[in-house]
Write a protein that binds this DNA or RNA. Structure first.
Lengths: 224, 224, 224, 224
DNA sequence: AATGAATGAGCTTTCATTCAT
DNA sequence: GATGAATGAAAGCTCATTCAT
């Protein structure tokens, strides 16, 4: 037994191999997708024997659950510092900065998250894990919505929009873009990605409706 | 074209065995996920021999692609008719109608499309198919962007937004929502889905930025 | 019923398809090898339906036998005119000319003949066909041996060599070379092939033993 | 190197399962021909699981190649010792000894090597393997040619013949004979085979050309 | 006689899992 | 705990053959 830097007591040898396996699996999942991740590849990538996997996990699925747990755990860390930004700088800057970090994360987990959809029983188990631990993508949306709501109170965001819908749109944009980048094997430079993201934020901030002061008294052109 | 013994006119796409295979595949994909759907199971579910699959489709990937294509159904028509809607009714109505059809489609194909990401080589194969036939999700985005651009020219959409970014955002919203519905096994009533979609469209139309002071006293332009 | 130019009575329609199938099979056998020749490819190459094959042949093996019969039939035609050359021109010229024709033939049938060895039961059936019709590669050897024997009688070939062994060597050289050309995918120009063949013939004509008149009275250097 | 429980020293090539597979394959290849030899049958014949085959060989082709390599056995050694025979005993004896070993090898591999020609893609794969490892039938020809050249320098072989052509002819003779033995299912006693080989060597040594008049009265130099 | 969709056994290969060392 | 050879059940796919038209 030993105590790690985090102060957590753990059996070192056990966790060494266990962690190596989890990290190797995550790396492979990201690179090749679930269907191409075999126990043999995992063992090789982790630098341990194939049989060792079964000392630490009941079967392959349990190893997978461990990876999902760990990946999902990171999910809302991305948005962690957002509440501290309320009222600071401009809303536009805050959103851009946050979504930039979100996108980096989203781009990395697309292959893992999507892989879950290839196996309904794996997806169901993931659902349970998220529910048990109170995590999941909906949490990120919630955090972002809370931020927008706080800015609404400060009058820095329009009062009549639905923060939940806006937050969903913002995160959806990043995830969808990440998926298309993977699907189309697009090579996007950081600068282009940044520019793309900026346009998205600006579009959502200004809205699609024409805003012509002179006409604001006449009947709205896109009313319903 | 050919006439069956029943006197029913049918074209190639109505082939009986072919249809049985596509429908069986869709059923299994939704129920079990791609990783658990084998050619053997598909054939049994369709009530045909395994070899028949390879008479009608070059390989499993092509069958999958046929399922996606068939699922597009209504959405494809809605998308095609979108250019005709330019200047008609309100922008809000047109977007809601289009996104409604999009969401129906997206909800159906999430389990299939996401499954592709579980296998990088299948993803690459899909990329090829799309590239050969000049199709793919980016086409839907493009069609929607063209529509927005046309409305921009008519002054029914703000001149300074990026149609591409706005179109991406709108479709991303639906896809992301569909993914979450599947992941969380949410049971969403059609009415709730409709309401949700309306909020999303409204949010994007009005934008997050607070309206200028002069207007903030008048009734909101797109209140509900 | 009709009579062909060869004076053979045959049902034209039957033989048309039958011949198309045999020729298509031979072509494919040559190009792809037995393992890659499927009934589907044969039918397509012949321009008939797959089922038609079974109207003319009991099964695939029977079609193959027909091809082998036809190919083997050509086997000794190659050496047909050789008996007429006895005593004409030089032995060297006659051999070169004959082996040139033999090689062209051998190069073409290597893939077919070798394919037979991939299936012992096919090889056994071929053995029967050859035995029934009195054909086969050994006949070519025999024809060449008879020629050499005849030249021996005229004193144009050494009296103390075994015609059978010499004939075997000559034909073996061509066949072996043809096999290596196929195996190594060598591209040999007609000129190079001709040169190669000439050296072979010359080597066999002169023999490996040193022939130094002055020493012919001393003990032979390579006697036994 | 490793020592088994029996205290037997063994190296990698002596691996038990590996050897069982190679021997089973050779047996089946000889009995049924490549077209009828499946991985299933090989595993059953070897008494191991089908999957074991893929632990020891990358694919079926590599197993086949291992069979060929193992079959070379004695012949390889004889070929290697050939350079040491230069100037030793008589050329005739050396050739007979070498070709005897060659024929034993050739007779065994005819069913395998010929089978390769039944599948152009397998033939191409073989070509690659040979090219990678710098081996192949042409190497045997080359070694024999080098030997003949060395004997030429010693005056024990005629100076004006082409060693390459002569070496090719000698090995071709054995291969062709082996092919005919298989095709015609000839049962040849070792004594008859020996005699046949002797005649072939003698024929090539003396050549077909009639000896010059001056000598034709003396006893033949290599009579029997 | 000719067609070609349909069949289903069988192919090579993969891979999660076990177990003697 | 760790190892990695061995297992054997599937996987995707092929193909000779049949049969209703």
């Amino acid at each position: 037994m030993a105590v790690t830097e985090d102060g957590v007591v753990q059996d070192i040898t056990m966790n060494k191999t266990r962690q190596k396996l989890i990290r190797a699996t995550e790396r492979l999942l990201r690179r090749d997708g679930l269907a191409r991740v075999t126990t043999r590849k995992i063992a090789r990538e982790a630098g341990v024997a194939e049989g060792a996997l079964y000392h630490h996990f009941g079967d392959k699925a349990e190893l997978l659950y461990a990876v999902v747990q760990q990946s999902m755990g990171d999910f809302h860390e991305v948005l962690e510092s957002l509440p501290l930004q309320v009222g600071q700088r401009t809303v536009c800057e805050n959103l851009e900065h946050t979504l930039q970090a979100a996108f980096d994360f989203q781009f990395r987990i697309v292959p893992i998250v999507c892989s879950l959809y290839a196996d309904q029983s794996l997806l169901a188990r993931t659902r349970e894990i998220m529910s048990e631990r109170g995590i999941g993508p909906q949490c990120s949306v919630a955090v972002l919505a809370v931020y927008l709501q706080a800015e609404q109170r400060l009058g820095r965001v329009a009062a009549d929009i639905e923060p939940q819908a806006a937050a969903g749109l913002l995160l959806a944009g990043g995830f969808h873009t990440a998926m298309l980048d993977h699907l189309l094997a697009r090579e996007v430079t950081p600068a282009a990605a940044r520019q793309r993201l900026r346009e998205t934020v600006r579009t959502l901030l200004t809205g699609l409706e024409p805003r012509i002061a002179a006409e604001s008294f006449s009947a709205p052109m896109t009313g319903r």
